[in-house]
Design a protein around this nucleic acid. Sequence first.
DNA 1: ATATAAATTTAGGCAAACCTAAAAAATAAT
DNA 2: ATTATTTTTTAGGTTTGCCTAAATTTATAT
Lengths: 218, 218
Amino acid sequence: MIQTTSEENYLKTIFHHAGISNNAVTTNDIAASLGTKAASVTEMLKKLSAQKLIRYKKYNGVTLTDSGTKQALLIVRKHRLWEYFLVEKLKFSWDEIHEVAEQLEHIQSETLVERLDSFLEHPRFDPHGDPIPDKKGLIKKSDSQKLIDVTEKKEAIVNLVTDQPELLRYLSKIGISIGSKLKVMEKNSFDQSMLLLINGKNKVLISSSIANNISVQL
Amino acid sequence: MIQTTSEENYLKTIFHHAGISNNAVTTNDIAASLGTKAASVTEMLKKLSAQKLIRYKKYNGVTLTDSGTKQALLIVRKHRLWEYFLVEKLKFSWDEIHEVAEQLEHIQSETLVERLDSFLEHPRFDPHGDPIPDKKGLIKKSDSQKLIDVTEKKEAIVNLVTDQPELLRYLSKIGISIGSKLKVMEKNSFDQSMLLLINGKNKVLISSSIANNISVQL
DNA sequence: ATATAAATTTAGGCAAACCTAAAAAATAAT
DNA sequence: ATTATTTTTTAGGTTTGCCTAAATTTATAT
């Protein structure tokens, strides 16, 4: 059940592209992320599929199975723990850590990960603010935060909206309600407006005052 | 100038077999250590030779070049620093560390090694008591110790012998003088006698009273 | 010194993970 | 709806690091 480094990288990439809602991911997207060619991706998808880590149907993109998701989350856990270690203990700045963590995340030793976690006193977020899954691959729900504070490229789920009927009406019109999945596509620094992708479908631009009134969790 | 993991393992193995005095190492010995077959070793020796990391002449064994030795020492440095980390910080017992350190030593990042070294406050010996080379690949000479205290399988260089003329005569007869390279082949626990390999050539058994009067450094 | 044994190298193959180029399927555009 | 475009897959190739079996070289033993 141990994956090769390459298989792990594919799982991780699929996981990151699929987002929380485990959307189907395309061959080309994977190739682009990994810097490989589509043909190589197809080959690997067959291998991962044979291991039941992904659901793969020709020409149809892939989704992670539960088992695949768990594997991916454990790799993410390792990656983020090492990032935390590099910043907190070795005093790396957080733009130096990615390359090294990419290597460290593939070290195979459950003991190592758990001892590292203890040594670091069970951090819940990595230096980029991303949550660190626990040893079972579960991400503890983060406390909710204002949408306006969500970083670019992050996905979040709508949690609460203030009960101003006018705002609620507007939000429902553009397709935002509790439980909606939002991805922050762009944040415009001059006016704090945000371009959102709603439920993976529609793009909408919202003003900072609206973003300020939507509460989400990652 | 960056090696593959496999190349690094070959260099390290050659280094460990060659000992301080850089003796020629045989194809079969390398194969046995690495759990590969002789044919695979031959193949790799050609690659390392092409990179001028070893001197290789068919049927003649190999020795490390200066460049190869330096590479090997840097890998050893990483290995031992990680071992120290695992024991001192992550509370591994020292029989659990080898497998993990074997993986960690191949992480490619000079910055990582140097920051780790600082974080650990520049340890000079790993948990097995082996010296940790510095960033230039130099092993600081350890303080001299009595031959009787040297661990089995370790190599040491004769440093000082007490000036008892009788002892000196005896030692010179069996081929031991200042600068001789000794490898401790066996230590007999019942009488503390030691079987030594002198300068990689002759085997000699010495009693504990003699071993007690020879000072060496690793 | 010659035969036997052991060590080493060569030759030919295999699996993993990549590639290019061509074929097939799905999507988009007129 | 049919063509054009894009995406994906298939069909060979390449490289790295390993393998087995056979050939060669070196070492050992009578």
